[in-house]
């Protein structure tokens, strides 16, 4: 049961990261089309806004995956100094992380609701109702909060979280 949940969560983090990566490719495509539109004189209204939405989506959907891969950085001097009591330092860090990311997630969802309530519309040429591009942002923020909570629970249960860092030398040939 526990391992099924583990596999499902990891799959969700990775799937979100794949979507984020896809957004980077789409940013590239939008910018190329934006240039092409200028060279050819065929208008592409709202291109800058679309690139911006993709940017936000790419960032937020990758937050959780980046956490588990150790990409988000922290000052670990104090943790190292704790030595055998490092567990308590990790616990504190993950507890604060869960609270902060939970706060972020709560208000990210709320901001989508407010955008719908106020009928907030992009001020650019795209005129997109702003809640649409904000949904993936909120989803990413919620996923980050889930991922922090997941790590916190895993740490308490197994005394080891799911964060596995890789540094530059691992990727070198």
């Amino acid at each position: 049961m526990a391992s099924a949940i583990r596999r499902a969560l990891d799959a969700v983090y990775d799937l979100a990261a794949m979507l984020a990566a896809l957004c980077l490719v789409l940013i590239l495509a939008v910018i190329v089309l934006q240039m092409a539109s200028r060279w050819t004189g065929i208008p592409f209204p709202g291109s800058s806004e679309y690139a911006g939405y993709l940017m936000a989506t790419a960032s937020f959907l990758a937050f959780a995956h980046a956490l588990n891969r150790g990409a988000h950085i922290r000052v670990s001097l104090f943790l190292t100094a704790l030595g055998p009591r490092r567990f308590w330092g990790e616990l504190w860090g993950l507890a604060i992380g869960t609270a902060a990311s939970g706060y972020l997630a709560w208000y990210a969802v709320r901001t989508v609701q407010l955008s719908i309530k106020f009928n907030d519309v992009s001020q650019g040429q795209d005129a997109t109702p702003i809640w649409i591009p904000q949904v993936p942002m909120a989803a990413g923020a919620v996923l980050l909060a889930v991922c922090f909570a997941d790590n916190l629970i895993t740490l308490i249960a197994t005394r080891r979280d799911n964060i596995r860092a890789s540094a530059i030398e691992d990727a070198a040939e």
């Binding site: 200028r38 004189g41 209204p45 040429q125 005129a127």
Partner: peptide, 19 residues
Amino acid sequence: AYNAATARIAELAGMAPVQ
């Protein structure tokens, strides 16, 4: 062109809008 109105001006005047 930076918004709908300026894009429309470009269109009416036969200019090439660049954002």
